[in-house]
Write a protein that binds this DNA or RNA. Structure first.
Length: 189
DNA sequence: GTCGCGATAGTCT
DNA sequence: GACTATCGCGACA
């Protein structure tokens, strides 16, 4: 079941915390619970790739809600976004990180290490095997799927300024989920 | 734990 | 030709 992607992209981003991303390539199945996302308001948002209108790179951002947008960052990393809003409106939620739920060994194999598997946008894509080949695919019935979910009890969410950008950096459109101190024992290392 | 820095290549101007 | 929605490593605390 795909989460509700209607309404303002900022609200959608916050609601996506706790949802699961699932990838399935042959026998390799991985899933991650989202704990860090950012909202981008397309052509209204100077920090968005879509601010200057459609280009070759960002065209799938203009597709309908539930489309996957994958782009290359710094020439070497892949980053994935969930496209929100209607066709022609380039709102999207950048998936920055999560905690491994399923397929940990597969992710460790892809990453070449056993820790810090999914705690950054580039790492998340590498661990889950997502590349530019999947740009524009459907999150409902493609190899990369989005499934509704909720955060564990005792987890809190907070809004902070976005990271790693130079324009409109002050908008509190980055959402992070984390255990409260009492639940910190559950926190992955 | 935090901070600084270099690598790297696709995309846009 | 410049820029980038990052990562991983080493230094230091």
């Amino acid at each position: 079941m795909i989460p509700d992607l209607t309404g303002d992209v900022v609200g959608v981003a916050e609601r996506l915390l706790g949802s699961r991303i699932i990838t399935e390539f042959g026998d390799d199945v991985t899933s991650v619970m989202l704990t860090e996302v950012e909202a981008y308001q397309g052509e209204l948002d100077p920090a968005s790739h879509a601010y200057n209108g459609p280009t070759r790179r960002n065209q799938s951002m203009f597709a309908a809600a539930g489309t996957l947008y994958v782009y290359r960052s710094y020439g070497i990393h892949w980053c994935m976004n969930v496209v929100v809003a209607t066709k022609g409106v380039a709102h999207a939620v950048l998936l920055r990180g999560g905690v491994p739920v399923q397929g940990v060994e597969t992710m460790a194999s892809r990453r070449g290490r056993v820790d810090h598997l999914t705690d950054g946008p580039g790492k998340l894509c590498q661990a889950m095997g997502v590349t530019g080949d999947h740009d524009g695919s459907s999150l409902t019935d493609g190899p990369v799927r989005l499934s509704a979910g909720t955060l564990p009890l005792g987890w809190i969410t907070e809004a902070t300024p976005r990271i790693g950008i130079t324009k409109a950096a002050g908008k509190p459109w980055r959402f992070i989920a984390r255990p409260t101190a009492r639940e910190a024992v559950l926190r992955p290392k």
